[in-house]
Simulated assay, not measured.
Amino acid sequence: MTHRPEPSSPTVPVRPAGPADAGEITRLRSTYVLSEPLGEDWLAVCREQLAERLGPGGDARAHVVDAPAGGLAACAMGLIHRLLPGPRYPEGLAGRVHVVATEAAYRRRGYARAAVAALLERFQQEGVTLFELHASDEAAPLYAEFGFASDPAMMRMTRLVAPDASPRPDR
């Protein structure tokens, strides 16, 4: 990331998320980010882990916009992880934007932009200097506004426990 993110918009009521928001963030991730919605068992596992990780000493950070009728209208959630330090990341911290989602009824209001700006600002305040994310084609222009750029060197691999099995929530 080359540009400092703009502070969140004062007209969008974005706030830091806490453990109590884990269920709604998990729901938004399942509904709007994942290629297939999670089943109830996986939702419970994710909700419990995220609640713990959003708590004191956890590695998750999130900023949310509340929906007027309850629940969340939008969220941006990321994870901080340690790396070996270097000149471009002297604190040895990287932040991965893991979830950005907006309820369909609340889109085109700047909620995602405000939540992402607040999340990136929080990362930066905590010493994060390497920012990562996976962007959909639809969201790429928003992230480019913050200074993100495509990196052809990034590669990805998923390894399941066994070639024909996927881990169960109870493992």
Rank of each mutant, 00 (worst) to 15 (best):
Q49M: 10
Y111W: 06
L50D: 08
V97G: 04
V97F: 01
A112S: 11
A60H: 08
V97R: 00
Y106Q: 14
E48W: 03
H63V: 05
E91H: 08
L93W: 01
A94W: 01
L83T: 14
G71V: 10
R107D: 06
D66Y: 04
H81T: 11
V100Q: 12
V65M: 06
G70V: 11
Y111P: 06
L84Q: 08
T102K: 05
V64P: 00
E52T: 13
R88T: 14
P68D: 15
E91I: 00
Y89K: 07
R107L: 06
R109Y: 07
G71N: 10
P85N: 10
R61F: 10
G58I: 08
R109A: 12
H98D: 15
A62F: 05
V64L: 05
V99P: 01
G55R: 04
G55L: 08
G55V: 09
L83R: 12
P68H: 12
E103Y: 03
M77R: 11
C75H: 04
R61M: 11
G86T: 01
A74Y: 02
G78P: 02
H98W: 12
Y106L: 06
R96H: 15
C75N: 02
T102C: 12
G55Q: 05
R107S: 03
L93D: 00
V65S: 02
A94V: 10
G58K: 02
E52M: 05
A69H: 14
E52I: 06
M77N: 14
E52S: 13
H98P: 00
G92P: 01
L54F: 03
G70H: 09
H98Q: 15
P56Q: 12
V65H: 03
A67F: 02
A69L: 10
V65N: 03
G58M: 03
R107K: 05
C75I: 04
H63R: 02
C75T: 14
D66V: 14
R53Y: 02
R53M: 10
A67V: 06
G55F: 03
A101H: 01
R96L: 13
A69K: 12
R96M: 13
D66W: 00
P56L: 11
L50P: 00
A62P: 07
V100R: 09
A104G: 05
L93Y: 02
